[in-house]
Each structure stands twice: as C-alpha cells, then as structure tokens.
C-alpha cells in the first residue's frame, strides 16, 4: 500500500459554476438579459422589483421574474400583480439560490419570448455572492435605513456586483443618510460601479433606472446584430 498526495484542483462549487455557464449560454442565445438581485432582508428588493416590472410592462417590455425565499409565495403573488410572469422558488432551509434552482424553475418558459429576467435572491449578503446564477449583471442593493457602511461590512458581495441600487431614498433625510459616504464606500470596495438611487414607494429615480434598462437592451441588440 502507498500513501501519496493526490492533486485535485477542483472547485468546490464546480457543479454550480457549470450549470450557471449553461444558463448564461441559454440566456445569451435567447437574447434575455438576466439580473441577480441581492441585498439584506428588508432592503426592499420586492418593492423595487414590483415597481420595475409594472413600469416595464406598461412600456411594452417583455419581462419575467423568479423570486427566492425560504418559505411562502407572498413575494411571487406581489410581483405577479404587475402582470409579468413570475415564479416563486422556496429554498426551505437554504440561505441562497443556486443555478440548479433557476434551471428547474425556468422549465416551460420560452426564453425567446423574454427580453429581461429578474432573479430576486434570498435576503443575505454573504452566501449568495459565491453562487453564480448565470446572470449578466448582479445588482447589490442597500437601503438608507441600513447604514452607509454596509458595503464595507460585506465587501465580498458588493465587490462581486456590477450595479448598486440605494433604496428608500424618500427616508434619506429622516435617517440622516450620508449620501457621499455611501457612494464612497461602494466605490472603495467596487471601483467604478454604477449607482442608482431610488424610492420605489415615491417613484424617485425609477424613470432613470427604467431608461437605463431600455438602453441596455438596445446596446445588447446592437451587439447581437453585429455578431450575426
């Protein structure tokens, strides 16, 4: 019998990464822009998404959403009131979404009928950062009530994101929200990240956000036509 060191060099999350890569290929092939929304519980992901879906539907855009929670389908029902196709993913004991859950819950949907897919992750700023869902862009959200230093406390998540959204801006004054500090902290952990400021409740900043989504679609379409 021999005792020896065996080199493995395999990612622990290899299986998830492979599934996510497959999803990304499917999204790209169908021309769907997929987003992964991450934040703490209570930041307002669902309220933001509800208003986003509603505005996009009114503008005639083809949008759908998957929403993850440990339990209940409350969020899916809220989001479905926008008229967009929505499915709830109940993770039960799991604190994050994984690529396999996304693949499973897309079954029966024709991705060619969609331009945008929003995936609302489980409220958690730690574990979801390690799980690629095949998204094009990861959106890290932060509300004015949480404190400006959240990005510094969770650099792994904010660094992994592509876009930051600051929510509940209507409460900024009441919370003595230090806008400059929040922007500086986001910039510190993710230099150059685009930041949106919104109030889903009052509508502030939502038009700019929707305009940006429309432009994103247009530039994606341009790229696709160049590739053909």
């Amino acid at each position: 019998m021999n005792t020896r060191v065996l080199e493995i060099r395999k990612g622990v999350l290899n299986k998830n990464d492979e599934l996510a890569a497959t999803l990304r290929e499917r999204f790209t092939a169908a021309g769907v822009i997929a987003f992964n929304l991450v934040s703490s519980p209570g930041t307002g992901k669902t309220a933001f998404l509800e208003k986003t879906l509603r505005a996009m539907r009114e503008a005639g855009l083809r949008v759908a959403a998957l929403v993850g929670d440990l339990e209940t389908d409350n969020d899916a029902r809220r989001l479905a009131s926008s008229g967009a196709p929505v499915r709830q993913i109940n993770t039960h004991r799991c604190c994050h979404l994984e690529a396999a859950m996304i693949a499973e819950h897309l079954e029966g949907w024709d991705l060619n009928e969609l331009d945008y897919l929003f995936i609302e992750n489980v409220g958690n700023l730690v574990c979801p950062s390690s799980y690629d869902l095949g998204e094009k862009l990861r959106i890290a959200m932060l509300s004015v009530t949480e404190g400006e230093d959240k990005p510094l406390k969770y650099p792994g998540m904010f660094n992994s994101a592509d876009i930051a959204v600051i929510t509940k801006m209507d409460l900024a004054e009441a919370c003595d929200f230090d806008r400059a500090a929040a922007h500086a902290n986001i910039e510190a952990v993710r230099p150059g990240m685009r930041i949106f400021e919104v109030s889903a409740k009052r509508g502030m900043g939502m038009a700019q956000w929707i305009d940006w989504l429309v432009q994103l679609r247009a530039s994606a379409d341009n790229q696709r036509s160049h590739l053909r």
Binding site: L6, I8, R9, S130
Partner: peptide, 22 residues
C-alpha cells in the same frame, strides 16, 4: 482603484492525502 480581481474568490480542493494499493 482596481476592479480587476485575479485571486480571492477561490474555493478549491487542492489535494488529498490518500492510501492506495501499491
């Protein structure tokens, strides 16, 4: 400032130390 991360997200099994048949 740099957003170009070259290492740090690693979560990898490097190696295992095993007994095997000679």
């Amino acid at each position: 400032p740099s957003g170009d991360i070259r290492q740090g997200r690693d979560l990898e099994i490097e190696s295992i130390l095993i007994d095997e048949y000679a």
